[in-house]
Design a protein around this nucleic acid. Structure first.
Lengths: 343, 343
DNA sequence: CTGAAAGCGCTTACAG
DNA sequence: CTGAAAGCGCTTACAG
């Protein structure tokens, strides 16, 4: 009488049982599983039939002990930013017909969690990692990439050869915003950026803003305010900027999420948008379309970025060695928040 | 001359190297790692020193072959819903000082992805799984829970003995909304619910709405509209409901996310809130506080739910057998969107 | 308290 | 084309 152990995986079908059922060797089953070369049609069919019949599913960790786990990791810096949902949609659609599964982790901005998350994913044998909006870990990214396929979204490193990058042209995006606002009659344009010393995309956006302001002859109005991401800090920064006497005519915010908070502060201060203040965001997330926001924003095709990053990562996992750097061209999507004022 | 293989993990320190360095057996190192009984102070110290010195990190998949992977899975139905960020914050804080790492997966509403995600997590040896807002898979949940520790958030199953549940009292939440709206002078209250046949939390909220409407003597105004989650479908449903001649005075939406879309539609229709229409959401997410939304909502303490679910899951992983069902009491957070109209 | 050996479920050379 | 055997890095009884 065989008593099932109270253990949790007692009912799991193994490759050995499939092999027995199909009357072949364990190695043969493994080959069919990996779609490896040198398996006859008939053997493959027998094995497939047994796998289906027994409802076999390979154990990823066991596979990972020698080969791949068929698991890709995605690290998000902040799950609250709705832009990441767009990226994720793209990643998911790229993975749809593949064997790969996506596992996500978040790195809280406070603490050393980003590094910890990367290590956790390496320890869990992810075949490759997609990193979004790298910040602190930047310097060690090359070292990491040499031991694990890596794609960075939202981190400019064109000259790097160890990992791929996927970006929109952030400098251009910021330039387009300045152009758009000037075209609509706003000349005193400030920028609300992120307090960071390591984000290359913010550096690019600030650079684009500066350059375009200067080239358009409104360089004397350049004003970059930097704030951390927390709700409280953004509100404080926005109140200070908008409550004072030298309030700008327009404010370019580095991401929609923050722009929505600015709209809130402006509304509370009794400012009308765009009458008293024009606001532009970045990422063109779904909230921009809501009538109560009607937020002009820069579309950087988040879904495409996600799609492309997953494709590149799989290529890397399969052996590609040279780095690729994918860049998409952004465009301004104009809405009410930056409309030309009635004269 | 030993040449490092081009393989990716050549630099990984193993338990064997730690054992050699410390001058003990591999089994001893394993025991220290697991903080198992029967290890002398001095042996432990030696091993710990070697682990630090060599910068040893255990490979989760190897551990999982016999024991635990120290990885917990969290399955989200829709990453766009900001409520899940609150839950996640709670889960993360519960895991902070533990050995466990969280890996998240999303199940797209379209397709059989929810089931696929659960299987993917089982195949990846998660020690336990937190499931948010279960829908289709409900009937097989018991079977699943018998092979893997499981906690469900947002799924009522008090009589179930195989897994834990973590919820707010959804029926009460809906009742409180009706009470609040009536107290503010709104009598013709409709409800915008989710098109689902399996969600128990929606069933509870609908029940609470119905019962309270009847008990308060406005049963003749009961009107439940059900819509899928997609932006398009919600807009269509909202336009039909709000554009018609028999527009309700107030609309209770099943989640904030949907309520924000309704605010958008109402705004586009030229309706003022709450002048022409009061709106109430559920979950009290951060967007409610934005002045342009000022959305009254039901707070179900998402962070607490997340915290509690992680704690319960770890207890289960450690062997607890009986089911626990945690319920938190919701409360209405009143904002401008449901303010009493000026007479 | 400590360690040698078997084994978890796969993949990978290597023979045949 | 097919399979027997070794091995991935851990944990788990089991001896000592």
């Amino acid at each position: 009488m065989v008593e099932a152990k109270p253990g949790k995986k007692s009912d799991r079908v193994t490759i050995r049982e499939v092999a027995e059922d199909a009357g072949v060797s364990v190695a043969a089953v493994s080959k069919v599983l990996r779609e490896a070369y040198g398996v006859s049609e008939s053997l493959r069919n027998k094995v497939r039939a047994s796998m289906d019949k027994l409802n076999y599913r390979p154990l990823a960790s066991a596979r990972g002990m020698r080969g791949q786990t068929y698991t890709l990791g995605l690290i998000l810096p902040d799950i609250r930013n709705p832009f990441f949902a767009d990226i994720l949609a793209g990643v998911n659609s790229a993975l749809e017909r593949t064997q790969y599964q996506l596992m996500m982790g978040t790195s809280h901005s406070h603490g050393p969690a980003e590094e910890a998350m990367i290590e956790a994913m390496i320890d869990r044998q992810m075949d490759g990692i997609i990193l979004i909006g790298t910040t602190k870990y930047v310097d060690r990214l090359g070292h990491l990439a040499r031991q694990k396929p890596l794609v960075a979204i939202g981190h400019h490193a064109k000259s790097n050869t160890d990992f791929d990058t996927v970006n929109n042209d952030d400098q251009l995006g910021a330039r387009l915003v300045v152009k758009h606002l000037l075209a609509n009659g706003f000349r005193n344009i400030a920028m609300l950026s992120l307090a960071t010393t390591t984000s290359t995309i913010l550096a690019e956006r600030e650079l684009g803003y500066r350059r375009e302001m200067i080239e358009q002859g409104v360089g004397e109005n350049i004003n970059i305010v930097r704030s951390p991401q927390t709700l409280r800090e953004v509100q404080i920064a926005a109140r200070r900027l908008l409550g004072g006497p030298d309030r700008p005519e327009a404010l370019f915010c580095w991401t929609d999420f923050i722009a929505l908070e600015v709209i809130s502060v402006a509304t509370e201060l009794g400012l009308s948008i765009p009458g008293d203040l024009a606001i532009v965001g970045y990422d063109n997330t779904m909230y921009c379309d809501f009538a109560q926001n009607a937020l002009t924003s820069v579309d950087q095709s988040g879904e495409l970025l996600g799609l492309q990053s997953a494709r590149l990562l799989i290529e890397r996992v399969r052996g590609r060695g040279e780095a690729e750097h994918f860049v998409v061209t952004p465009r301004v999507v104009a809405r009410n928040s930056s409309k030309r004022r009635a004269v």
